[in-house]
Design a protein around this nucleic acid. Structure first.
Length: 576
RNA sequence: CGGGGCGUAGCGCAGCCUGGUUAGCGCGCCUGCCUUGGGAGCAGGAGGUCGCCGGUUCGAAUCCGGCCGCCCCGACCA
C-alpha cells in the first residue's frame, strides 16, 4: 500500500475525550473515529487490525473443529421471551419495534438465535458434537461506555456455541476451546492469563476468562507463585490459614468507648491506637429485601460475589443510609454486631479473632474487647473476603497469590442445559430418550483486543504492534522524495517485499523526514526500512524494529531477506 | 441513575466572571517561495448556526431557564 493513497488521518494532538492511552493512540494514529458514545468507525488501518485478529481466530476455531456461521444481528423478542431473558436482561438490551409493531432487539449475544437454529436441525446424538461460531457486531447499551474500544456499546465479537449429548462431551468441547483460546491469544502476541471466573448472569458452573495483563485493566486477577492457579479476584477462594485458628471467647465484657466523629476504619484505629486487624467491620446489606450483616476484619475487603453466593441471593446491595440508621439506631459508621437483630454472617478470618473493636450501634461510640459467641452470635462463617497480595494459594497451599490488573478479552462458559431446556433444544440419545443438549459458549472481544494490545505495548511515540496483528508488517521510508535514486530504491524494496507476500506500507509522500518518522512510530508498524541518500550512496539502508533501538545497516539487495527473517522470527515467538 | 467537568473553525484551546466594533491563538488545510535524517521557515489565504430552544436587554459566545450531546469517577457489566 502506498501511503499517498491510504486514508490515514493522523493527529498531532489527542482529542480531549480520550483519556486512556489506547483510546488516544487509536484516534491519533487514524485507526478509529467516534460516531457516538461507545460507537466507532474503523478506518482502513483499524479494519486491517480487526481482520488480522479475526483471521487468527478463524484459523484456530477451524482447527479446533468449529464451523463459522453468520447469524442475524436483529433478533425477535419472542426468542428472548422464550429463554426468559427479555425480562431479565434489562436496559442493556437495545429494543425496538418494526413497522408492524413487532418487538425486536439488536443482539448483545446470540444464545437464543443459535439454539433456535440448532433445535430444528439437530435431532440425534449421532449429529453431535457441534460447535458453531461467528464474528460479528454486537450491541450492548452499556451504562457507561468508556475508553474507546475497551468498553464500547457496539463492538465486534467472536462467539461460539458448542452442543454435546452429555456433560462429559461438553467438558471435552470446553477444554478444546480453552486450548484454542490459548493458541489464539498467544498468536496475537499478547501477554495474558487464563483465570478461573465467576459465571455472572449467564449461569453455568465452569468458566474461565482470558485476561491481558495491563496496569490499566479494569479487572483484578490473582495468580499463584508456585502452581498454575489463577483467578479473577471476584472468584478467588481463600482457605483459612493457620493464623485463622478459631479464637475462644475470653471472660469479661465489651467496653464502651467514645470515638467522636470517627467513622472509618482508618479514623477509628488511628484514634484508638490499634492496628486495623484488631477491628471488625460491620457491613449491612440489603439481600433480596432482607437486611443481613456481614463482618470482615478491618484490613480486609468484603467480596460481594462470595456473599451473594453464600446467601443464595438474586440481588444484594449495600443498605442505604436510612436503613442502616433504622437498624442500628446510630448514624453511618457506628454499626456493630452486638445487639443487632438481623442475621449475621462473618468472614472466616473473623472467627480467629477475639477481643476486637466494633461499632457500638450508638453515635460516636465503639466497643472494645468484643468476642463472638459471647457478645453476639454469627449464623455462618465463610470465605467472604477479597484476596490480597500475599494470601496463601487455595489450590497448592504453598505458594502465595500475586495481584495483577487485567483486560478481559475472552470468556468461556460451560453452560449446561440452561438454554436448551428453556428453549426445548433436545436430541434423542442412544436409548431413544429425548435429552436437552449440553452447551458451552465462548466469546472473544475482537475489537477489545486492539485496545488491550496497545495498552500492553506502546511508548511515548505511539503504538508498538505485535507483528501478527499489525496493520502492516513493514513500513518503507524513502526519506528524500526529491532524490530519484532514493525514490527508486524505495520502490524496488516495496515491490520486492510485495512479491514475497509481505504486507508493506510505502511512505511515498513528499513529506519531510521528521514527519515520516513520527507517523511511522505513531501507527506502530513493527518493522521499518529507512532509505536515506547518504546510506544509499554507500549501498545500504537502515532496518529497525519498532520496539527496539538498534538499527541494522543492510545492503539494499538484502532488505527483503532481512524482513522475511524478522517476520519468521517474530511469528515463531508467537507459535504458528 | 448519583457526583464532577466540558460543548467557541477539522483538532487542541483563549474569550464568558465584569454583555458592546469585522470572535481570537496554536496545530492542521489551500497558494507561492524555500526546505528535506525526527511533526522546518517566510508570505498570503480559506474556514465559525459560539451545542439547541427560549428568556432578559437597545445589544448575548458572555446573564437566566430548559433541553441535547460528550468526558471522568461511582453503581453496573455474557
Amino acid at each position: 500500500m502506498r501511503y499517498s493513497k491510504l486514508y490515514l488521518p493522523t493527529l498531532k494532538e489527542a482529542p480531549k475525550e480520550a483519556e486512556m492511552v489506547s483510546h488516544q493512540l487509536l484516534i491519533r494514529a487514524g485507526y478509529i473515529r467516534k460516531l457516538s458514545a461507545g460507537i466507532y468507525s474503523f478506518l482502513p488501518l483499524g479494519r486491517r487490525v480487526v481482520r488480522r485478529i479475526s483471521t487468527i481466530i478463524r484459523e484456530e476455531m477451524d482447527r479446533a473443529g468449529a464451523q463459522e456461521v453468520l447469524l442475524p444481528a436483529v433478533q425477535p423478542a419472542e426468542l428472548w421471551k422464550e429463554s426468559g431473558r427479555w425480562r431479565f436482561y434489562g436496559p442493556e438490551l437495545l429494543r425496538f419495534k418494526d413497522r408492524k409493531d413487532n418487538e425486536f432487539c439488536f443482539g448483545p449475544t446470540h444464545e437464543e438465535v443459535i439454539v433456535d437454529l440448532v433445535r430444528h436441525e439437530l435431532r440425534s446424538y449421532r449429529q453431535l458434537p457441534v460447535n458453531l461460531y461467528q464474528i460479528q457486531t454486537k450491541f450492548r447499551d452499556e451504562i457507561r461506555p468508556r475508553a474507546g474500544l475497551m468498553r464500547g456499546r457496539e463492538f465486534v465479537m467472536k462467539d461460539a456455541y458448542s452442543f454435546d449429548l452429555d456433560e462429559a462431551g461438553a467438558r471435552c468441547s470446553y477444554h478444546q476451546m480453552v486450548d484454542a483460546y490459548n493458541r489464539i491469544f498467544r498468536r496475537c502476541g499478547l501477554d495474558f492469563r487464563a483465570v478461573e471466573a465467576d459465571t455472572g448472569n449467564i449461569g453455568g458452573s465452569l468458566s474461565h476468562e482470558f485476561q491481558v495483563l495491563a496496569h490499566s485493566g479494569e479487572d483484578t486477577i490473582v495468580s499463584c507463585s508456585s502452581c498454575d492457579y489463577a483467578a479473577n479476584i471476584e472468584k478467588a477462594e481463600l482457605t483459612s490459614s493457620s493464623g485463622d485458628a478459631p479464637a475462644s471467647a475470653v471472660d469479661g465484657e465489651p467496653k464502651l468507648v467514645s470515638t467522636p466523629g470517627k467513622r472509618t476504619v482508618d479514623e477509628v484505629t488511628a484514634f484508638l491506637g490499634i492496628s486495623s486487624d484488631r477491628l471488625v467491620k460491620t457491613l449491612l446489606y440489603n439481600v433480596d429485601g432482607e437486611l443481613v450483616a456481614a463482618l470482615v476484619r478491618g484490613d480486609h475487603e468484603l467480596n460481594e460475589i462470595k456473599l451473594k453466593a453464600l446467601l443464595g441471593a438474586n440481588e444484594i446491595e449495600l443498605a442505604a443510609e436510612a436503613r442502616v440508621v433504622e437498624a442500628t439506631g446510630a448514624p453511618m459508621g457506628y454499626a456493630g454486631p452486638v445487639g443487632l437483630s438481623c442475621p449475621i454472617v462473618a468472614d472466616q478470618a473473623v472467627a480467629a479473632m477475639s477481643g476486637f473493636v466494633v461499632g457500638a450501634n450508638r453515635g460516636d461510640h465503639h466497643l472494645l474487647e468484643v468476642c463472638h459467641g459471647r457478645d453476639f452470635s454469627v449464623s455462618r462463617y465463610a470465605d467472604l473476603r477479597l484476596a490480597v497480595e500475599g494470601d496463601r494459594c487455595p489450590r497448592c497451599q504453598t505458594g502465595t497469590l500475586a495481584v495483577f490488573r487485567g483486560i478481559e478479552v475472552g470468556h468461556v462458559f460451560f453452560l449446561g442445559t440452561k438454554y436448551s431446556t428453556a428453549m426445548n433444544a433436545t436430541v434423542l440419545d442412544e436409548n431413544g430418550a429425548e435429552v436437552p443438549m449440553v452447551m458451552g459458549c465462548y466469546g472473544i472481544g475482537v475489537t477489545r483486543i486492539m485496545s488491550a494490545a496497545i495498552e500492553q505495548s506502546h511508548d511515548a511515540d505511539g503504538i508498538i504492534w505485535p507483528l501478527p496483528i499489525a496493520p502492516f508488517q513493514v513500513v518503507v521510508l524513502p526519506l528524500n522524495s526529491d532524490q530519484p535514486d532514493v525514490v527508486e530504491a524505495g520502490l524496488q524494496i516495496y515491490e520486492g517485499l510485495q512479491a514475497r507476500g509481505v504486507d508493506v506500507l510505502l511512505d511515498d509522500r513528499a513529506e519531510r523526514p521528521g514527519r515520516k518518522f513520527k507517523d511511522a512510530d505513531l501507527i506502530g508498524v513493527p518493522l521499518r526500512v529507512t532509505i536515506g541518500k547518504r546510506g544509499l550512496a554507500e549501498g545500504h539502508v537502515e532496518c529497525k524494529s519498532r520496539g527496539q533501538a538498534e538499527i541494522a545497516r543492510v545492503p539494499v539487495e538484502g532488505v527483503v531477506e532481512w524482513v522475511l527473517e524478522q517476520i519468521e522470527r517474530e511469528n515463531s515467538r508467537f507459535l504458528q
